[in-house]
């Protein structure tokens, strides 16, 4: 299965690399409303994934016959505040998490610094999670993986 996931990532990454989703200029052009490209990519992805998800959930089974389970996201103050912080980072670097790795693969050296910052940032969140749970209304760690 490891090779299967690697192959899926390869296909996904090629689409990111060649569509502009991993390109600094296209990210800035999206936020400056100068290019439709990224809105088109995300919009198409959602418009095609939504009916597929609906049908898959109605069918209810994976290819092996196992029941489909989808982990749902929690809703709390972090949903907004974390989103705002991430948006600032996406603008600064011109990369969201997936494209950071694509950019490193492409040979863009500075993307390594974006990855290092992201790992430190995620560590800081994880370490301060117990202190942030009350002000942000975050779910307790054990229950944070709710499955349906």
């Amino acid at each position: 299965m490891t090779l299967f996931y690697l192959a899926l990532g390869l296909v996904f990454g090629l689409a990111l690399s060649r569509s502009g989703a991993a390109d600094y200029n296209y990210i800035q052009a999206m936020f400056l409303f100068q290019s439709f490209q990224l809105y088109g990519i995300i919009g198409t992805a959602v418009v095609l994934t939504a009916p597929g998800l609906y049908l898959l959930k109605r069918y209810g089974r994976t290819v092996t016959g196992a029941p489909i389970t989808i982990e749902l996201k929690a809703m709390n103050r972090g949903t907004v505040v974390g989103g705002l912080l991430f948006g600032v980072g996406w603008s600064i670097t011109g990369m969201c998490p997936g494209p950071i790795l694509v950019n490193i693969g492409e040979g863009k050296v500075y993307a390594l610094a974006a990855l290092a910052g992201s790992l430190v940032g995620a560590s800081l969140l994880g370490i301060s999670y117990p202190r942030l749970s009350r002000p942000f209304g975050l779910p307790p760690v054990a229950a944070s993986a709710t499955r349906r």
Binding site: T79, G82, G89, I100, A113, V120, L124
Partner: peptide, 16 residues
Amino acid sequence: MFVGGLFIGFGTRLAG
């Protein structure tokens, strides 16, 4: 890029 990365790592995980 490192500073931007801090925002990405902290923000995405806070937002889930």
